[in-house]
Every structure is written in structure tokens, then in C-alpha cells.
Design a protein around this nucleic acid. Structure first.
Lengths: 166, 166
DNA sequence: ATGGAAATATCGATGCCTAAATTATCAAAA
DNA sequence: TTTTGATAATTTAGGCATCGATATTTCCAT
């Protein structure tokens, strides 16, 4: 009867099987959605602004903290390791988009800030970025978006708790 | 009145500002959830089985396609580039967990399959993996999980459409 | 004060990931 | 045939990401 896998799946979710726990299927679907959107945004950022997603993300954090952030704060907020932040910051410094200033309070720490050019550059990109995101969610109605937002809050709490206590 | 940012945010979602479009906040929350869960699973896979998440994912694809998969099919299903699949497969071959067989139909292509050891090894890991996922979702009730699952289907369709054309 | 634990950032090794170029094969048309 | 174009996989170069180790500095209990 050749079920002939609907093929051309192109999708992480295909990892799920009917025997799998519903939670697993739910997780794989979540992952598939995120990858789809993230990959799309990543390639558009590259194509249209010649910037990488991690650099954009770091700049976004600084945009909303005009007083600047310490490396460790960036690391926490971006949910990546400290060594990683060091590397991304190096690149952005080399491009003149951010600066590392010595912290007056703590000689171990730096305060990272957007440069004027960095701020200008980011604002232009952020505008386009937001438009792309809106496009990607346009197939959901107002109500669905609201529900999804609330459900993800529940999930976040659940996962943070489970992940936190080892 | 110093709202004083609830701080200790530790969260990508902090990128959102009240001025941001609701869609953007929704997207950032989605991303935060995924990162939280994915990072947790990644570190447990490493700690308990000394394997990376990408290798686990590749093996998971093969587990449910016992006839084997071509490199390109793996690439599509995992939503990563072909060059990436080449590298991950190399590692798994070196570990004796998968094999590359010549395709009888097409001399350009390989068929990748789990070895008996790979299958045995994967099944043990998958069992633990599924348990972790269940733990992470335990804070959502049955109804919420069902709703989330359906809403993500809508999102996936929406995003695939928007990302596809253009 | 001071000695030890914790915090801040960086570095080095390793592996993932992409984009672009390359090699080899296939398939279909001139 | 032989050319043409597409497809399958790899390779290369650059950047992202983790982990573990290191050097400095800070904090605190003595």
C-alpha cells in the first residue's frame, strides 16, 4: 500500500512517532516552529543587513538598557555562556557598534554600550526585523496569539522550575 | 515609582519592551521557552550519556526510518544544511553508531543507517530523554498542553507560508 | 587585617552551523 | 552522442556555542 511517507517533510517534527508520549510530540512541534522562524530571520538579517543573529540579539539587549550592561548580564539575558558573549562583543567592538567601558564600581567588570553608530544601525534593523516577525505570525488571529502568549508563560514557569531544581 | 525591572531576568525575553509589537513579544517568549528547554536537554545529554544534541537528533531521525535516509533527507528533516549533516555523520560513523552505505539507485548518494549498537544506544537515551521532556511540561495540565499543541500547528502553518514565499 | 570562597571576564579546545565553492553523477534534450 | 542543467554530497572559511581552566578582583568570616 506504500504509505510512501508524505516526504519532503523538511521538519524536525518528523522525529515524533505515534508511540511517543504526547509531551514529546508537543516539544518537537515547539522546536520545529522555533527553528523555522529563527532560520528565516537569520537569513534575512544576513541577506539584507549583513549581520548575524547573535550580534543583532546582543545589540537588542543594549538598546533597551541605555546605561549599558556587564558581560555577565548579557550572558544571563541572552541565555548563552560568558565565553560566547566575549567573542560576540569582540566582533561588535571591531565593527565600531559597541564599546567596552571599565566599570567604576568593579575593576573586574566591563560595561558594554552601543555606540551612536551602533544605535543608529540597530534601529534601522529592528524596524525591519519587527515587520518580518509580524509577517510570520499573520496566520494567527488576535485571540490565538493571546492564548499562545499565555500558554507559553505557563510553559516557561513549568520548564524553569523543572530545569532549575536539577 | 521605580518599577525597578524585576531584574535577575536571565531571559531572552527581556529583549521586549512595552513599545514593541505584541507579535515581537510573543516571538521572544517562544524563543525563551525553547532555549530554556533545549539548553537543559543538551546539558543532561552531555552529562549522562556524553553525547551532543545534534548527534542525538540525527540518530532519532534514523530510528524512525529503519530503511535508512540519504544525507539530503536528514538535512531537510533536521532543518540544517547539508554540510552540517556531513560533519555530524562523520562523528557518528567514527563512534560506530551509524554507517554510510552506497545507494544502489544513485551513485552520488549515501544511505545512512543506525548500526545495531547505535540502535541499542539510542533506545536507552531516548527513554531518559522522554522522561526529561515530561518533567519539563509537568506544570501544564492536559488541557493546556492540548491547546498549545493546536496553536503551534497554526503558527507552523503561518510561518511556513510566510517564510516560504520569499 | 587576612585567608579563603565566590564572582568577573577571558582563553583554549572542540564541535556545531552556515554560505559558497567544488566534485561527481544523473537525466533529459539537442 | 554530447551538451546542458539540476541534484548529492563534500570541502572550505568564518562565526557561534559549550565546557573547563585561568587570572583578577571582591567579599566576608575570621
Amino acid at each position: 500500500m506504500s504509505k510512501k511517507t508524505v516526504s519532503a517533510a523538511s521538519d524536525t517534527e518528523t522525529r515524533a512517532t505515534s508511540e511517543h508520549a504526547p509531551d514529546l510530540r508537543l516539544w518537537l512541534r515547539t522546536l520545529a516552529c522555533t527553528n523555522l522562524i529563527e532560520n528565516h530571520i537569520r537569513s534575512r538579517l544576513r541577506a539584507e543587513f549583513d549581520i548575524t543573529l547573535p550580534r543583532f540579539d546582543l545589540m537588542a539587549q543594549l538598546e533597551r538598557s541605555p546605561q549599558g550592561l556587564k558581560m555577565g548580564e548579557l550572558s544571563k539575558r541572552m541565555m548563552v555562556t560568558g565565553g560566547n558573549v566575549t567573542g560576540i562583543t569582540d566582533q561588535l567592538v571591531a565593527e565600531g557598534l559597541v564599546v567596552r567601558e571599565d566599570s567604576p564600581k568593579d575593576r573586574r567588570a566591563y560595561i558594554v554600550k552601543l555606540t551612536p553608530e551602533g544605535r543608529r544601525s540597530f534601529r534601522k534593523m529592528a524596524e525591519a526585523h519587527e515587520k518580518w516577525v509580524v509577517e510570520l505570525f499573520v496566520g494567527m488571529d488576535e485571540n490565538q496569539r493571546g492564548q499562545l502568549y499565555e500558554l507559553l508563560a505557563v510553559l516557561k514557569t513549568s520548564a524553569a522550575k523543572a530545569a532549575g531544581k536539577k
